[in-house]
């Protein structure tokens, strides 16, 4: 797995972005950019090469689910791997995210090990 891939963290809480960045660093990913909501994330995705998205579900302006739908609907971005972060594993949320084409989801709180597992599952171990 290429550890130099560019990962976009999308979360309205600066602290949570830092926490995820810190965990990603622990598991060897250092090429990270951040956005504080879905709308800003979408602009970043359109203006630079981003290889992986980790997005929170609950955000103002544009939620994680709306961002996911926008990414899947855009021919240039549609194949971008997308990991959704939620504070609760409500079945209806999971179904909605899967329907919208999410690659996987992770429930807060999570450990570095769990996040790594999810990334490996999406990207493969090559």
């Amino acid at each position: 797995m290429d550890k130099n891939i560019k990962i976009l963290i999308v979360d309205d809480f600066a602290t949570m972005r830092k926490v995820i960045r810190n965990i990603l660093k622990q598991i060897g990913f250092e090429n990270i950019v951040e956005a504080e909501d879905g709308a800003i994330a979408l602009r970043a995705l359109k203006s630079q090469q981003i290889d992986f998205v980790i997005a929170d579900w609950n955000m103002p302006n544009m939620t994680g689910l709306e961002l996911l739908k926008a990414v899947r609907a855009d021919a240039d971005l549609a194949k971008t791997p997308f990991l959704m972060v939620t504070a609760e594993a409500l079945q209806e949320n999971v179904i909605a995210a899967v329907k919208a084409g999410v690659n996987n989801y992770i429930v807060k709180p999570f450990t570095a090990e769990t996040l790594n597992e999810k990334i490996v599952k999406i990207l493969g171990t090559d």
């Binding site: 809480f13 600066a14 602290t15 949570m16 926490v19 504070a87 609760e88 429930v107 807060k108």
Partner: peptide, 12 residues
């Protein structure tokens, strides 16, 4: 920020 996020997670 962290207190808000922790409250959110404990509630979840």
């Amino acid at each position: 920020d962290a207190v808000g996020e922790l409250t959110n997670m404990v509630s979840g």
